[in-house]
Design a protein around this nucleic acid. Sequence first.
DNA 1: CCGAATTTCTTTAGGCTTCAAGTAATTGGC
DNA 2: GCCAATTACTTGAAGCCTAAAGAAATTCGG
Lengths: 167, 167
Amino acid sequence: MMLDSETKAVELPDDHADELRLWLRLLTCTNLIEGEVRGRLRERFDVTLPRFDLMAQLDKAPDGMTLSDVSKRMMVSNGNVTGLVERLVESGHLDRRTSETDRRVQVIRLTKSGRAEFRKMAAEHQTWISDMFGDLSPKDVRELMRLLAKTKGSVQKSARRRAGEAR
Amino acid sequence: MMLDSETKAVELPDDHADELRLWLRLLTCTNLIEGEVRGRLRERFDVTLPRFDLMAQLDKAPDGMTLSDVSKRMMVSNGNVTGLVERLVESGHLDRRTSETDRRVQVIRLTKSGRAEFRKMAAEHQTWISDMFGDLSPKDVRELMRLLAKTKGSVQKSARRRAGEAR
DNA sequence: CCGAATTTCTTTAGGCTTCAAGTAATTGGC
DNA sequence: GCCAATTACTTGAAGCCTAAAGAAATTCGG
């Protein structure tokens, strides 16, 4: 049983409604943006969001990444990455080779043309995002960054608590 | 952003990097929470998140909803709802009938047992969310709500601009 | 009334995603 | 060296999801 050492003096009688509303609003915002990005990527470049995300990871790693690295970074399952990579190699965006030192490991990189194509997409993508956040002042942006960082930490702590319980 | 290795890396004057970082952080937070909720729903109730979300919509509508209503509320495609509803009717959680006044329309409701099961899940779900946001003060929560509302408005405005352009 | 346009839902094809089980390669204790 | 455990990835089954095309019912202008 988990006990919080920092006990709040008075907790309102189990009112968790605010947090729930916050979560729903967070989800709505993300879905709105994600849907918009998805649609624009398809419309402008005929590419899916997962493909774009994978290429974005690889663009930051000139020496390539293993499938496990990608899986962790993208927070998706291993099997998922296998399929995604398969299709991107097929279409010539990715290059894949078995590691010299560990034959279990597959190292993937962007091909030259894959990288060029990604850079074009990324530049436009960034302007879309900037446009979508257009109404927020620089101060709003900073404040949101701060609060989301705090949120992330809080969620991770909670997730660790749960993972710990499962022992 | 880095340019081609042959070219010199240049920071463009109109820098949108902050907004991009904000978007990535927002996405990370949402994914973390969503993944956690997904895992707990599966573990505790052997139910998927989309099923839970659909039941949540119906719980708020005692008189039922049409598939189109659900589709709009959940921000997913029509065809998606068709399949989701099919499986939930199959499992006895939902009741589905054709509207008396318009035979194109399907009205779906929670069954008695479906509602009971949902209420149990929802109660626990709310405590998970509350726990995950546990490190945020009431003031943080309010501030996040405010900023996300502003963000939502900004994104919708941008989306309308795009939709308008497509004429 | 008639037919064109619209609305509601379903179907289809393809892709994404997870979990769980399986295979292959490596590591580490003995 | 040997073999059990671990790690990296793949496969398979099921479900989720979208866009696009299609079917059925309704609405509305003329």
